[in-house]
């Protein structure tokens, strides 16, 4: 564990808490994309399949449970909570998740660290699911970014949520650079490339977020 990775995990945790805070306290999910939240629930479900079979540390297990619990409860709130669901604007949240999930699944079958298709074993299945979750996480924010461009006035909590979500993966990139130089054989091209793509997708959001912070004006993304 290094400072970049810890900072990344804490930033990721904070992003989830900001969103839960918004939904739980003001009982509103205005401006939040349910599609992105559902994609994140799938990301965590497919990445943490090994939560019961492989034990790494109390921290690792606890964080996995927090991310699984929070992502599924956010989806539950937005779908079924009688007050929160009213503030969900489904007409603005039109991105079709399957056009993201299918290519990620096909890509995970073709490009993963195992590469060997012949051994259809549980470990191969775990590798494919884990790789799928990496690719899916890289693009899971797209429905949310599309929705932000359509929602004219982005409220502060939503802006902070997206900012923290992008920042966490940027910190992970620093963590991968650090581990590459300090550990033997630490090479994970698949993780690095999908993490880089993920962070680059936030590039324009970061730019407008920084501008709004610097000029102290409301955050607005160009249509």
């Amino acid at each position: 564990m290094n400072i970049f990775r810890l900072a990344g995990d804490m930033t990721h945790l904070l992003s989830v808490l900001v969103l839960l805070l918004k939904i739980h306290t003001i009982k509103s999910c205005a401006g939040i994309s349910l599609k992105t939240q559902e994609l994140y629930a799938v990301v965590f479900a497919t990445r943490y399949l090994d939560i019961f079979t492989s034990y790494i540390s109390p921290y690792n297990t606890m964080m996995k449970l927090i991310f699984l619990g929070s992502s599924f409860s956010i989806v539950w709130y937005m779908r079924y909570h009688k007050i929160v669901r009213r503030s969900y604007d489904k007409d603005q949240d039109t991105f079709r998740p399957y056009i993201l999930m299918l290519p990620c699944l096909i890509l995970a079958l073709l490009i993963n660290e195992k590469f060997t298709f012949k051994e259809i074993s549980t470990s191969f299945f775990l590798f494919v699911m884990w790789t799928f979750s990496l690719y899916l996480e890289a693009v899971a924010i797209l429905p949310q970014l599309v929705m932000l461009q359509r929602t004219r006035n982005i409220d502060n909590l939503t802006g902070q949520y997206v900012f923290l979500l992008g920042a966490y993966r940027a910190l992970y990139i620093l963590n991968w650079i650090y581990r590459y130089f300090t550990e033997e054989h630490f090479v994970h091209w698949i993780t690095w490339i999908s993490g880089l793509v993920q962070t680059l997708l936030y590039a324009d959001f970061f730019y407008y977020y920084f501008q709004s912070w610097k000029n102290n004006v409301k955050l607005q993304l160009p249509a």
């Binding site: 990775r5 990721h12 492989s54 790494i56 690792n60 660290e113 775990l126």
Partner: peptide, 10 residues
């Protein structure tokens, strides 16, 4: 290299 080595990160 088994599954654990590669997946110690969240």
């Amino acid at each position: 290299r088994d599954y654990i080595d590669d997946h110690d990160e969240l």
